[in-house]
Design a protein around this nucleic acid. Structure first.
Lengths: 221, 221
DNA sequence: AATAATTTTTAGATAAGTCTAAAAATTATT
DNA sequence: AATAATTTTTAGACTTATCTAAAAATTATT
């Protein structure tokens, strides 16, 4: 049986290692988990014994196939619960993370398959992140950061990089939501701020904001 | 912060002590929690320090006001989740307990108040047990055991004493659900079995079954 | 009321996950 | 390539929740 702590380490390793592709260092895990490197070493040994990670002393860890499956399943559960909270229980997108962090550890295959059906098989969570299907497949869309979009291009908002409450509230305040259409008007070379147009209103976006907002470039527009 | 284990002990004490009214012995808790009496003593000391229970050595425990509030809130969460699983996710009433045991520990006031609203403020769970409201008030209905019902009386099925999968499946098989109307036809003195009539079909019910099914006596019928 | 049976508590040990401080290995710098 | 800086691991300790075995208190029986 896998413990809650083990699940959280596996999740952290998955995210830090570019979704299970890259090696992750002890220190990186320690920082992510807000714990000490020595604790990470202990846990990593345990995860290695249980064959969730490949581990060589001083070399960091990589998720095994088994470990990656577990990570993807946690992500699937997390994102499905987020959709539930927003769509059915009227949570706003900046309120869901904390609760989903708890719900993602509930163990019941039937629960998740039925929840998925109840929500009509959503493909993305409220922050625009893809929801792995029951086989663990993740659909990728070719989104780019708003900061990378060309002047004059028409874009649709499809996701956020930073999903902190502060950032999401900023977007709410400025009427930017997933699905919002916008046009890139101007980039100020001095600070890399961007002027965008939503419907008929212009808005200046700082580089920091533009670096945390994913858009899909609508070539036909 | 209260731990998951502490919550489970409090819940056990609540149920064993007639919903927080009576004193509960160490051995009774040990049996319910499937652990050893010595472990219970340790935990009970901790719960006492945290003022969830009143405890005197060798005298067992009683829930404090604070302890009872926690217990009732766990029961509320458990039963709301059971309703959700049955009404929204198509679980059958014999499948919900295990999952609800996990979901009842999720900590979020908003989650529960919104779930309550989403389910349209249900008053009873799928087994007929009352759901405490957000203030902890529990509505009692005057149900009796089927075994105590008078010959000739018309009854409505309103709950089960035993909610084991085996018992619930027996009821399903015999088309007995909450809300089912039945008439008490005959009691066999030799084994206290009861003959009941549902719609126009007669059915013989053993004393053991009759002792685990709650009914409301419909005086007007 | 004395003894027996049962219940409860204490004492000491174990496992999971964490910590600090020090040692070892790796990586960076001169 | 030697030394410095950083990263990682080890060793030993602490906490929570558990256990076994023995001691203490309570309850039941004669």
């Amino acid at each position: 049986m896998i413990t809650l702590t083990e699940e959280n380490y596996i999740k952290a390793i998955y995210h830090l290692g570019n979704y299970g592709l890259e090696n992750v260092s002890t220190n990186a895990i320690a920082k992510e988990m807000e714990t000490k490197a020595s604790s990470v070493t202990d846990m990593v040994k345990k995860l290695s014994e249980k064959e969730y990670v490949d581990y060589k002393k001083y070399q960091g860890v990589t998720l095994t196939k088994k470990g990656k499956e577990i990570a993807i399943n946690i992500v699937r559960k997390h994102r499905l619960w987020e959709v539930f909270l927003v769509e059915k229980l009227n949570f706003s997108w900046d309120e869901v993370h904390e609760v989903a962090e708890q719900l993602e550890h509930i163990k019941s295959k039937k629960l998740i398959s039925q929840l998925d059906a109840f929500l009509e098989f959503p493909t993305h969570d409220p922050h625009g992140d893809p929801i792995p299907d029951s086989s663990g497949n993740i659909k990728k869309i070719d989104k780019i950061l708003l900061s990378e979009a060309k002047i004059g291009s028409h874009c649709i908002c499809v996701g956020v990089q930073d999903s902190s409450s502060e950032f999401l509230k900023y977007l709410d305040k400025n009427n930017i939501a997933l699905g919002t259409k916008l046009k890139i008007c101007h980039r100020e070379p001095f600070d890399n701020s961007i002027t965008i147009k939503i419907v008929d209103k212009e808005l200046v976006i700082s580089n920091l904001i533009a670096n945390n907002l994913f858009v899909y470039v609508d070539a036909d527009a």
